[in-house]
Amino acid sequence: MTDLTLEQKLDVLTEGLAVDVTYSYDNAVTYWDGYTRSYQYEKVTPTMDQDGMVTDTTYVQYGENTSLDSYSTFGGQQRYNAFRTRIKYEKTWGDHSLNGYIMYQQDKTVKLNQYNTYLNQNLALKAYYSYKQKYLADLTVSYAGTNWLPEGERFSAYPALGLGWILSEESFLSSSEVIDFLKFRASAGISGNSLIIKNIAEQQFGSGNGYYWGGNNNSASGLQEKQLATDNPKSEHSFMGNIGLDAIIANNLSLAIDAFYEKRYDILVESAGVTSGTLV
């Protein structure tokens, strides 16, 4: 496993500007090593008289003692690498404060066998702004995709916006002896999930049950239809909204009130065993 991060400040261009690059690589391989040998053993069979007394014993030997043999088996391999680079900016001037970054990220996993390469890419912008430490805004926009989905549906945009107002910093509350901290916040955004079944848009075929034919009732194998292709699959999406209030009262009581809304769409559902109720 290898992890490497490099960061370079670019104040020579403009104060607060920097860039960093991160790379990770992991190559996991599984082997089994072992040793085997055989041993000679014997079976003892007693002969008894009518009173149950042993009168004779027969020994029969089986197998043989062998030398120690070694073996080695390859179990599997998985290679993972991740790359991320960001251009970061942080600046404070007067009552204003701004920091954020533009990021590109890629994760790739390669396993053995066919259809076992997974690639995810993400281009994102994140910015945080505050004015007088009272009025806050947080913006995130992500454009992400995966090779799990068919071309044309691999990438989606995921924006999110959060706003905050620290009322306890206002003049009408700053001198309050009861309210130590009071913040109102609201946010809304879209998230997604692309971890769906690989190659779900392709029609699947597999080994059939066979067919018996001819005078000798011979069996012939063949193919049969398996999983049906899913028409136009895409990332699953979720719209979420939240409004809330945070407070600290009399330096002793903490309070948080939230109202939350979520609506999911483009959700893939299992269709096994489901048939149409309409006869054609």
Rank of each mutant, 00 (worst) to 15 (best):
N232K: 06
G152T: 06
W213Q: 10
I243M: 15
D180V: 02
F205A: 05
W165A: 06
K263A: 01
D33N: 11
L268T: 07
L195C: 01
G34E: 11
P233S: 15
G214T: 03
G244H: 01
T66L: 04
V110P: 00
L279V: 14
T117M: 02
I102L: 05
T30A: 12
S97L: 04
G164R: 02
Q105L: 04
E90K: 02
L245R: 03
T66D: 11
N217G: 12
S156I: 07
H96I: 14
G152W: 02
T14R: 11
K198T: 03
D51P: 06
N147S: 11
E151S: 14
D266F: 13
A229Y: 08
L167Y: 15
K88C: 11
Y31P: 08
G189W: 00
S70Y: 04
K134Y: 02
M48Q: 08
T275I: 12
K43D: 03
I200K: 00
R154W: 11
Y101L: 08
L163C: 07
E170D: 05
E177H: 03
G145W: 00
A82D: 03
T66A: 02
E170L: 11
K9M: 00
D3M: 14
S176E: 13
T22N: 06
V141Q: 01
D51I: 01
N147A: 13
V280W: 03
S238Y: 09
V178S: 06
G63Y: 13
E42K: 14
A124R: 05
V60S: 00
T278R: 10
L98S: 06
Y135K: 01
Y62Q: 15
S235C: 08
Y118K: 05
G152V: 00
G241A: 14
I197S: 07
L13F: 04
S271K: 05
N199H: 09
M240G: 09
Y212A: 10
N209Q: 15
D258M: 05
F74G: 05
S191N: 07
S171F: 12
K132R: 10
N232A: 02
V12T: 10
T146E: 01
D231E: 08
L4C: 12
G162T: 13
R84C: 09
I196H: 01
R185N: 10
L228T: 01
N218C: 13
L245I: 09
Y131N: 10
A259I: 13
Q204S: 15
R84V: 08
L68C: 12
K226V: 10
S175Y: 05
A250D: 14
E64Y: 12
L161H: 07
